[in-house]
Amino acid sequence: MNVLVLMLTVLNCLSKASERTFPRIVPSQLQFLEYTNLTVTCEGFFNDMIQWRVLRKDEKRNRRTSCNKNTDAFGACHIEALYPSDSGEYWCESDDKRRSERVQVTVTVTDVILESPVRPVTVGDHVTLRCIKRKKLKPSTKFDFYKDGVHVNTSSTGEMILHNISLSDQGLYKCNVSEKGFTKENLLQVKAVLLELPDRPVLEGENVTLFCRDKMAASNYTTFFYKDDEMIGNSSSGKLTLNKVFKTDEGVYKCQTSEDRESEEQWLAVRGGNSFSTSDVSGVTHFNMFYLSGLIALPVLLFVLVFIYKKYKGPPVTNEEDEAKYTALTKRDTSLYHELKPPNSTC
């Protein structure tokens, strides 16, 4: 059973995309109405073999605290009913003090909020902003959207779609419903540079290639690669290869182009050389199928053998029946012996 659980864990790890350094917010938004619920999880934070907890900064007391009521609890944090006091920065942290990026969550007592992406978006994406009211309120026919304090759009549906987004779309957004006023502002971050890492944790000894693409740069530009905020190399081809990685190569990576634009940070996880590979998983699968088949077949085989044994052995004979048969047989043999015994026999 332990082997089966380990196998499923490995499969789950291999199916994940590149591990990121942002906590996951559910629902995916930064503003929340009072009394609604919130879940903060760190799936893919560093790697699945490291325990992590969700922490937050208490804005009122200006101190950090655990998101969970049990301060020693690891894993996701779920808040069933939000209050303004739950506003603040949320992040993930492991036992060895590795930290993710921080996400600013705002809980408001007003009746309208702005829903926007939690993470930075990429140049060329299509982004939807939504102005959301409490369900109990009357329907509205006019929603106004603002960027950096300037009116940019009016909508009858409460949605504003930014097509083929560019760096100029980055900024502070808010919306307004005439009878309920303005929402708080959300920062929409736009990235033109993409850093591509392997879509799985890598094993020690593997060669790992990092790819960096600037969607807005000219054809010729220099790329600088960083690990834990320290430059580790540069390239004119937009790629950097890490030869035979070790556990010390695990960390937060990003890239920056000569156009002074940088990518979002990403976590590269490195597992020990004795970790399972894809072929190992296949072997474990075959082993478990054989093992489980044996566990199922053994009781059935024992039942069949017992049934056959009882059927052909016949009904059990009691001790009284044995004694009676033995006595009758003895008397009959004695009579027969006396009839056949020679006259002069001394036996």
Rank of each mutant, 00 (worst) to 15 (best):
residue 51 Q to F: 11
residue 52 W to S: 15
residue 53 R to Y: 11
residue 54 V to G: 01
residue 55 L to K: 15
residue 56 R to A: 04
residue 57 K to L: 14
residue 58 D to Y: 10
residue 58 D to L: 07
residue 59 E to Y: 09
residue 61 R to G: 00
residue 61 R to I: 08
residue 62 N to P: 00
residue 63 R to N: 10
residue 64 R to G: 06
residue 65 T to G: 14
residue 65 T to E: 15
residue 66 S to C: 06
residue 66 S to R: 12
residue 69 K to L: 08
residue 69 K to F: 11
residue 71 T to E: 11
residue 72 D to Y: 14
residue 72 D to Q: 12
residue 74 F to E: 10
residue 75 G to K: 13
residue 75 G to N: 12
residue 76 A to M: 09
residue 76 A to E: 15
residue 77 C to K: 04
residue 78 H to E: 14
residue 81 A to Y: 15
residue 81 A to I: 06
residue 82 L to P: 00
residue 83 Y to T: 14
residue 84 P to T: 00
residue 88 G to N: 12
residue 89 E to W: 13
residue 90 Y to E: 07
residue 90 Y to T: 06
residue 91 W to A: 01
residue 93 E to A: 03
residue 93 E to F: 09
residue 93 E to N: 09
residue 93 E to Q: 15
residue 94 S to I: 09
residue 94 S to W: 05
residue 95 D to C: 00
residue 95 D to P: 00
residue 96 D to W: 14
residue 96 D to S: 11
residue 97 K to I: 10
residue 100 S to H: 02
residue 104 Q to N: 13
residue 105 V to D: 04
residue 106 T to D: 14
residue 108 T to L: 02
residue 108 T to H: 04
residue 110 T to Q: 12
residue 110 T to M: 12
residue 111 D to C: 08
residue 111 D to S: 12
residue 112 V to D: 01
residue 112 V to H: 04
residue 113 I to D: 00
residue 113 I to M: 05
residue 114 L to Y: 01
residue 117 P to R: 00
residue 118 V to Q: 03
residue 118 V to G: 04
residue 119 R to D: 15
residue 119 R to P: 06
residue 119 R to H: 10
residue 125 D to P: 03
residue 126 H to E: 13
residue 127 V to S: 09
residue 127 V to A: 02
residue 129 L to R: 07
residue 130 R to P: 01
residue 131 C to T: 03
residue 131 C to W: 13
residue 133 K to Y: 02
residue 133 K to G: 00
residue 133 K to D: 01
residue 134 R to C: 02
residue 135 K to G: 04
residue 136 K to Y: 08
residue 139 P to I: 02
residue 140 S to Q: 08
residue 140 S to E: 14
residue 141 T to N: 08
residue 144 D to K: 11
residue 148 D to Q: 04
residue 149 G to M: 05
residue 149 G to P: 01
residue 150 V to R: 07
residue 151 H to F: 11
residue 151 H to N: 04
residue 151 H to S: 07
residue 151 H to C: 06
residue 153 N to I: 04
residue 155 S to F: 04
